[in-house]
Design a protein around this nucleic acid. Structure first.
Length: 301
RNA sequence: GGGGAGAUACCAAAGUGGCCAACUGGGGCAGACUGUAAAUCUGCUGUCUCAUGACUUCGUAGGUUCGAAUCCUGCUCUCCCCA
């Protein structure tokens, strides 16, 4: 029997979790989350993790599995997820993976190149350079250390420049030498299901979901982690806006408005990413039966 | 009833005779993206063709001028103050 990883993708708020649970029930299997924020046990309401009842119904992995205090990245996710998947395939033939972090999904489906760990001080130094000497300084440094990547990189994007430079400085080798960009072979098959719907309808759902989050106590959740607000893990829609409200920079109403807008932006960005993936089979969220039929036909092949 | 201010593209808001299809911000749309990815970055946004091209715009109807979003007149509407 072949091993099949069902990957459920789509913009935030479209109903990935719900569909995944239905699929997991139907195929009697379990769910791996690919969500860079649901990973953190301190975050629940703002990241729209499945409800405790839902989590009880179907075993979920990589939800609430880490702390915001840990450093996390796509490569770690690849390692952990692949480990889990191969373990779970010992007892299951089908698995569901779902989540909105496209880079994380790709890390599992295609793999991500090995890159060495970098000392935190190196990144901090580069960030200081950026602030004090400007982005041009980083560009020139990269041009010297890695001409190849300099030609490819978005020279206006500070994070890209810093990442490349920190690897160069850490290893003494050009960043581009680590970028093989080869697709890894996986021991299982992958079937991608994409969910989409009318844009206006999706935005309306998102707006409502944010209102529900506020009613459910998002403000309190944010308050609890407010002392850690500068952590990267909390540079997250739904929290950063409330932190600004706590800092008295904006009103609460404004914060809610911004959460809605930023969530919409996020959804759109996800769709931009997903659109170019030709492996995705697109459906609307209500087409649950069609999706199951589609998967079963695929299993028979 | 009297006095004053103003009506600019989806919204806000500059522009006060030619350099204006119209600054800027927001929103919207599109895109990039292999260790910060819910992050970060980019482009477009009057219409048509998509070109340094054409056409229609700055409440509305006229007028002045070689030329008007910009000046004048009527009208409509909004806001403020005094009654």
């Amino acid at each position: 029997m072949k091993k099949l990883l069902l990957v459920v993708q789509g913009p935030t708020g479209i109903g990935k979790s719900n569909l995944s649970i239905q699929l997991a029930k139907h195929f009697q299997t379990e769910i791996i989350s690919a969500d860079s924020r649901q990973l953190f046990k301190e975050l629940s309401i703002g990241t729209a993790v499945p409800t405790p009842e839902e989590l009880k119904q179907i075993p979920h992995y990589l939800i609430h599995s880490h702390s915001i205090l840990e450093n996390y990245n796509a490569s770690l996710f690849e390692t952990e997820a692949i480990g889990l998947i191969s373990q779970l395939f010992n007892k299951l033939d089908v698995l569901v993976m779902t989540g909105g972090s496209m880079l994380y999904v790709d890390a599992v489906c295609k793999g991500i190149d090995f890159q060495p760990d970098v000392d935190a001080q190196i990144r901090e130094k580069l960030m200081r350079d950026l602030e004090e000497k400007g982005i041009e300084h980083l560009r020139l440094q990269l041009k010297q250390l890695d001409e190849v990547y300099y030609q490819q990189v978005d020279l206006k994007n500070p994070k890209r420049l810093i990442r490349a430079l920190e690897v160069c400085l850490m290893t003494g080798k050009p960043y581009s030498s680590f970028r093989t960009e080869t697709t890894k072979k996986r021991a299982f098959q992958i079937l991608k299901i994409g969910l989409n719907m009318d844009r206006e309808q999706l935005y309306e759902r998102i707006n409502q979901r944010v209102d529900h989050m506020m009613q459910a106590g998002l403000e309190n959740e944010a308050k609890n982690i407010y002392p850690h607000r500068h952590l990267n893990s909390l540079n997250t829609v739904g929290y950063k806006e409330l932190f600004a409200y706590f800092d008295q920079e904006i009103s609460k109403e404004k914060a809610v408005e911004l959460i809605k807008r930023n969530t919409r932006h996020y959804a759109r960005k996800q769709l931009t990413w997903l659109r170019k993936d030709e492996a995705i089979h697109w459906f609307e969220p209500h087409q649950q039966n069609e999706i199951i039929d589609f998967i079963e036909r695929n299993l028979e092949q």
